[in-house]
C-alpha cells in the first residue's frame, strides 16, 4: 500500500470509509496461532462470538476455520471453546514452530 503524504490525510484522522480496517492486515502481530481440531468441534460458535477480530470463518452457519490475515493470536477462542468431552477443538500453537 502506498502511504499518503500529509496533504492527503483526513482532518482529525476520521475514517470516512466504512470497513476500511479490512485494508489493514494484523495477522503478522501473531505470536501464537489457533489450530482448529474439527473432530472435537460441536459447532457452538462460541469462538465466532468471542473473537475480537472477526477472524473465525463461518460458512452456512458453521465454523470452518480461521482467517489468518487478521487473527492476532489472542487465544480467546481457544479459552472459550468447550470442545467435545473435555477435548478442546481449538489449541494455540507457537508461530514458526
Amino acid at each position: 500500500m502506498k502511504l499518503k503524504g500529509w496533504k492527503k490525510v483526513t482532518p482529525g484522522a476520521v475514517c470516512t470509509v466504512a470497513g476500511s480496517a479490512l485494508e489493514f492486515k494484523t495477522g503478522s502481530w501473531r505470536a501464537f496461532r489457533p489450530r482448529w481440531i474439527e473432530e472435537n468441534c460441536i459447532q457452538c460458535l462460541f469462538c465466532w462470538m468471542y473473537c475480537p477480530d472477526m477472524a473465525v470463518n463461518v460458512k452456512d452457519g458453521k465454523m470452518v476455520g480461521f482467517n489468518y490475515d487478521y487473527c492476532k493470536g489472542c487465544g480467546i477462542c481457544a479459552l472459550e471453546c468447550p470442545g467435545k468431552k473435555g477435548k478442546k477443538a481449538i489449541v494455540m500453537e507457537e508461530e514458526g514452530k
Binding site: L3, K4, G5, W6, K7, V9, P11, G12, A13, V14, C15, T16, A18
Partner: peptide, 25 residues
C-alpha cells in the same frame, strides 16, 4: 447514511503526517 469512525490508532507510519497537517491548519 455516511458512517465514520473517530479516534483510530495512528502508528509511526502516519502520526507525523497528522501533526504536520495540524501545523498547516
Amino acid at each position: 447514511d455516511h458512517p465514520v469512525s473517530y479516534g483510530p490508532l495512528i502508528l509511526p507510519d502516519y502520526y507525523m503526517e497528522y501533526r504536520r497537517a495540524h501545523a498547516e491548519v
